[in-house]
Simulated assay, not measured.
Amino acid sequence: MRSASGPTQLDTAYDRLRSDILSCRLRPGTRIHINEVAEELQVSVGAVREALSRLAAEDMAVATAQKGYSVPEVSIEELRDLTNTRIAIEEFCLRDSIAHGDIEWETELVAAYHRLQRLPEREPSDPTRLSDAWSAAHQRFHAALVAGCKSPWMLKIRGMLYVQTERYRRLSVPLRTTERDVAAEHKGIFDAVMAKDGDLTAELMRRHLTLTTEILVGSAELSETNIQ
């Protein structure tokens, strides 16, 4: 829990490690050195250990006996499984959201879409990396799409899948060999949702999620050393 005066040492360690793992600043398979993290963030070793324990419970870190913690590996097999599962869950949540979403849901969705469209996708200082601000807006937009869904458990599962696929999405950015119009993909999904066309929305979302997988699987630069 965050105190009224600001984040605790645990909050600081957890937020930074989670961000570094999702953004791939900590690459898959990298060992996490607790003392180094504590020194860099100016927090206690205990706070880092507790943060890593929490991340391990969320499958965002791997605890190994006698070896400490590391960033989870990635693989084509897992990516395909995650993508197929997420497509199924997203479709349910989207259709339910369209069926039950009210004017407040539409208002929040419009705001989330507008913010996403106004931000650059890439970091200006490093075009091979996604902008952290854009990534936060992207997460908010995808969450807003399904916010009208009435099933808390389906939304919870969907949120877990989103986080697990985030690292793969970040990895796909520098591996694109052809130009991808992500903004157009989002506009198509947004327009279909606002038109309350469940079939079109589901199809566009399936294409949107599948394309990231295809980029990673089909990249000529992909090798055993950088994804497995």
Rank of each mutant, 00 (worst) to 15 (best):
V182Q: 09
R122D: 15
G218E: 02
R176W: 11
Y168L: 05
T213E: 14
T64D: 13
I227E: 00
P124Q: 12
L116R: 07
A112I: 08
A147D: 09
T107K: 14
G68H: 05
N35R: 15
P174W: 10
P152W: 05
L116D: 13
L10E: 14
W105K: 04
S19R: 09
F92E: 01
D81K: 03
E36N: 12
H100D: 02
R140Q: 15
V217Y: 04
A202H: 06
K196Y: 05
M154D: 05
P72S: 10
L222P: 00
S5L: 12
L204D: 08
F190D: 01
I157W: 10
E50G: 05
F190Q: 01
S131T: 09
A112E: 10
E224G: 09
P120T: 11
L22G: 09
M1Y: 05
V173G: 03
L211E: 14
D191E: 15
R86Q: 15
G198Y: 10
G68Q: 05
T83L: 01
H142S: 06
A56G: 01
M194Q: 13
L161Q: 03
T177N: 10
H186S: 09
Q228N: 13
V110F: 10
E121Q: 15
A202M: 00
R170W: 12
V48N: 04
L94K: 03
P120M: 12
R95E: 09
I87C: 01
T212I: 06
L109W: 07
R86P: 00
L26Q: 06
P174N: 04
R206G: 09
L52H: 09
A137N: 08
V173L: 13
R49Q: 14
R206I: 00
L26V: 00
A202C: 02
V48T: 06
L222H: 01
V217A: 04
P127L: 14
Y113P: 03
E36M: 07
S75M: 02
E108D: 12
W134C: 04
S70P: 03
E73I: 06
S3F: 07
R140C: 08
R118H: 15
H186R: 09
A47K: 00
A137M: 12
A57W: 05
S70V: 00
Q9P: 04
L216Q: 01
D20F: 08
P174R: 10
E106P: 07
A184D: 13
E203S: 10
A88Y: 11
T30N: 11
T212F: 12
H186I: 04
G198W: 07
D197I: 02
L161P: 03
L222Y: 00
Y162L: 05
R80F: 07
L17T: 05
V217W: 03
K67W: 10
T212P: 00
H138T: 01
A112Q: 11
A56W: 07
E123N: 14
I189P: 03
D96H: 08
E203Y: 07
T107P: 02
T30C: 08
A99H: 12
W105L: 00
L171G: 04
L204V: 01
C24K: 06
E224F: 12
L155Q: 11
A57Q: 14
L22V: 04
G101W: 08
I189N: 03
M205Q: 08
T64L: 13
M1W: 05
A61C: 03
L119R: 10
T83V: 12
L41G: 02
T85V: 01
W153F: 14
R118E: 13
S75A: 07
A57E: 14
E104G: 03
